[in-house]
Amino acid sequence: MTGASGFLGTHLLNYIRNEGFQVLGMSRSIISTNEYIYGDLLNINSLENACKKVDTIIHCAGYAHAFKEQSSVEGKKHWEVNFLGTKNLVEAAIDQGVKKIIFISTVKVMGEKTTLKKVSEDYQDEIVSDYAKSKKAAENLLIEVSNKKLIETIILRPCMIYGIGGKGNLERLVGFIKKNKVLPIFDTKNKRSFLHISDMCTSIIAVLTQHAESKNKIYVVCGNECLSTTNLIDLICSALNWKGINIKIPTFILKFFAFLGDSFERVFLKKTLFNSQILDRLTESACYSSDKIQNELNWKPTVNMKEGIKELVKSIK
């Protein structure tokens, strides 16, 4: 399993071992032991060594900075790690006789936003960020090698994954509210999907244990609920069991401050705490359906947002 030292990888290793699978975690920041092996996606020799006597690869490693506007350096890093790194891994896997690769992609390969209604695997909107473009290119590569019957592939497209130990936008929002005792109530009508880390892990277990059904398939993985930013703030407030200073911010005010943030960044070439990219995350919809994996592999998300947020609030100091 690549990315063994990351957020998903550390959780997933425990789940897989508890299911009785023999798994070797690969990371470029880990010294090889009985349970881990060194491997660098940009070092083909290390990948050849890591793939020896391996039946299945779970490819969790990647570089994620999914904003639309990025420096050329970050754009290059996305391409190197997410596409070229995956290409190197696939070549090493084929050379060493690996039978199957489970690739952890992202719903962002379907576009940066959706409608208010849930969308499934065949939905496609404009791909903007370098992160999504590099992941889409990696998906295309995997589809190509599977069509040539060189190796079996399964592609999982999770939405935003959250949970204990995560460092994403949801974890930062909870931390901000707990620290500042302020509840910013955004007047939005958007809908977004979320996925608890344990449900992400069980979806991968479902793929591992139902080989025939999942062969060469693509699955969106998400929870059953789609929440607005306002709904999300309400759940955090409920989990905290207190009322802070409620600041209801109309969307037009948010747009004004986002404009100021963008202008500051263009003039001073420095990042601000709030800009149009962050506004998009708060106001745009990203609502998905996991009906396909639920119907075909009998996988179900078990952690609802109320339970997940309560757990997350307790874990963040």
Score class of each variant (00 low, 15 high):
residue 220 V to K: 04
residue 233 I to R: 05
residue 227 L to Q: 00
residue 204 I to W: 09
residue 193 S to Q: 05
residue 247 I to N: 03
residue 261 G to C: 08
residue 260 L to A: 13
residue 252 F to V: 14
residue 211 H to W: 12
residue 188 T to E: 00
residue 268 F to V: 10
residue 188 T to R: 00
residue 241 N to C: 12
residue 248 K to I: 07
residue 214 S to K: 09
residue 240 L to E: 04
residue 197 I to E: 08
residue 203 S to D: 13
residue 234 D to L: 15
residue 262 D to G: 13
residue 255 K to R: 10
residue 231 N to A: 14
residue 212 A to T: 13
residue 233 I to P: 03
residue 194 F to S: 03
residue 251 T to K: 10
residue 246 N to E: 05
residue 223 G to C: 07
residue 221 V to I: 14
residue 193 S to I: 06
residue 235 L to M: 09
residue 191 K to A: 04
residue 197 I to S: 05
residue 203 S to P: 12
residue 193 S to V: 04
residue 240 L to H: 02
residue 192 R to Y: 01
residue 249 I to H: 08
residue 236 I to E: 02
residue 254 L to K: 07
residue 223 G to K: 03
residue 235 L to E: 09
residue 201 C to N: 09
residue 187 D to Y: 01
residue 234 D to N: 14
residue 236 I to R: 07
residue 202 T to M: 13
residue 188 T to C: 03
residue 244 G to R: 02
residue 253 I to H: 09
residue 237 C to V: 07
residue 263 S to N: 11
residue 237 C to I: 12
residue 240 L to T: 06
residue 253 I to T: 11
residue 187 D to W: 00
residue 254 L to F: 06
residue 190 N to F: 00
residue 265 E to Y: 02
residue 210 Q to F: 09
residue 259 F to Y: 13
residue 266 R to A: 11
residue 215 K to I: 14
residue 205 I to Y: 08
residue 230 T to Y: 01
residue 254 L to T: 13
residue 208 L to P: 10
residue 226 C to E: 03
residue 250 P to Q: 10
residue 267 V to C: 05
residue 202 T to N: 15
residue 258 A to N: 13
residue 211 H to A: 15
residue 212 A to L: 13
residue 244 G to N: 02
residue 259 F to W: 12
residue 242 W to F: 13
residue 190 N to R: 00
residue 249 I to P: 06
residue 192 R to E: 07
residue 228 S to K: 01
residue 226 C to F: 04
residue 189 K to H: 08
residue 224 N to A: 03
residue 229 T to S: 12
residue 213 E to G: 01
residue 203 S to N: 11
residue 239 A to I: 09
residue 214 S to L: 09
residue 235 L to H: 07
residue 241 N to Q: 11
residue 240 L to G: 00
residue 227 L to V: 06
residue 239 A to L: 04
residue 231 N to F: 11
residue 205 I to N: 07
residue 191 K to Y: 05
residue 241 N to E: 10
residue 263 S to H: 08
residue 231 N to V: 14
residue 250 P to K: 08
residue 247 I to G: 01
residue 257 F to E: 12
residue 230 T to L: 03
